[in-house]
């Protein structure tokens, strides 16, 4: 119950940032460098302010919004990619299956963060500088998504192999439905349950990956900071006494990830008919 409330509070905070936050940290007009490095608890700056004079509380709310957005979008992307490849792999079998699964094996032997870095790097090099700023977030989503499709593909493939042999699929084949129609209309609804559970838990992982990439400086640009970017900025001031700039976004990240994991656990139990 406490967990549910906390989760809701966190997600609501992130979603409704523009309406809750006292300040819009992305609006250069509202920034004032004179207000930099306020300590937490200063009037108007409950959690202090950063080096640009932005209110840290507002920045965290906005940052969480970006983190959550990037997390959700990249999981959606991974889900789409993984589920389709898994379905095709499991349903078609044979060489197609072998090919997709070998690609998956190869990818699994690299850490996900490395894949994301690689995709991100390639995209940056191959695109002109002008475009880079505006597409930084889509590139990030793409790279995190590509690094995470494998577990969906594997799960869906396994479940598809089971469902494919069931007689309702054979019945649809006797009727004369095309493979694609059978995959989408018959198999997909029956393999989606476990996948959705993985997805919720994956959102948390994706947010951490995003934070890591941003912390390393290849993620979200500092003009639209996510939690990871904030931590990186804060890191520069950690030893000069302005500890709050790194600490509070860090705490926010932990709470956000934790609450999403709790949500995933709850969803898993709710979807499991044996526990109902």
């Amino acid at each position: 119950m406490v967990a549910a409330t906390l989760t809701l509070l966190c997600i609501a905070g992130a979603l409704f940032a523009p309406w809750i936050a006292p300040q819009n940290p992305f609006d250069p007009a509202s920034l004032n460098l004179n207000e930099a490095f306020h300590r937490p608890g200063s009037p108007g700056y409950p959690l202090g302010s950063d080096d640009q004079g932005r209110d840290l509380f507002s920045t965290i709310l906005y940052g969480a919004r970006i983190s959550l957005g990037v997390g959700l979008a990249s999981v959606l992307f991974a889900l789409l990619l993984g589920v389709s490849l898994g379905l095709v792999s499991g349903y078609a079998g044979g060489r197609i299956d072998a090919f997709i699964m070998r690609v998956a094996d190869v990818q699994l032997s690299f850490p996900a963060i490395l894949i994301a870095l690689l995709v991100d790097g390639v995209a940056r090099v191959s695109l002109p500088g002008v475009v880079q700023g505006s597409i930084a977030i889509p590139v990030l989503i793409l790279s995190i998504g590509v690094s995470g499709w494998v577990q969906y593909a594997r799960t869906v493939r396994g479940l598809t192999l089971v469902e494919r042999e069931k007689e309702y699929v054979q019945a649809a084949r006797v009727i004369g439905r095309r493979p694609l129609a059978i995959m989408v209309a018959h198999v997909l609804p029956n393999v989606l349950g476990p996948v959705l559970v993985i997805a919720t838990i994956h959102i948390a992982t994706a947010i951490i990956t995003e934070a890591t990439l941003s912390f390393l400086g290849v993620g979200v640009p500092p003009t639209e900071p996510s939690l990871g970017t904030l931590i990186r900025v804060g890191n520069d001031f950690l030893f000069s006494g302005e500890w709050w700039i790194a600490l509070f976004p860090g705490c926010a990240l932990v709470i956000l990830v934790l609450s999403i994991n709790l949500l995933g656990d709850w969803l898993r139990d709710a979807l499991n008919p044996k526990l109902r």
Binding site: K166, A172, N190
Partner: peptide
């Protein structure tokens, strides 16, 4: 045209 009836009444109908 032909159609088929299967053995397992629990697996031959799509549960969803």
């Amino acid at each position: 045209r032909m159609q088929m009836i299967f053995q397992d009444p629990y697996a031959s109908l799509n549960p969803r």
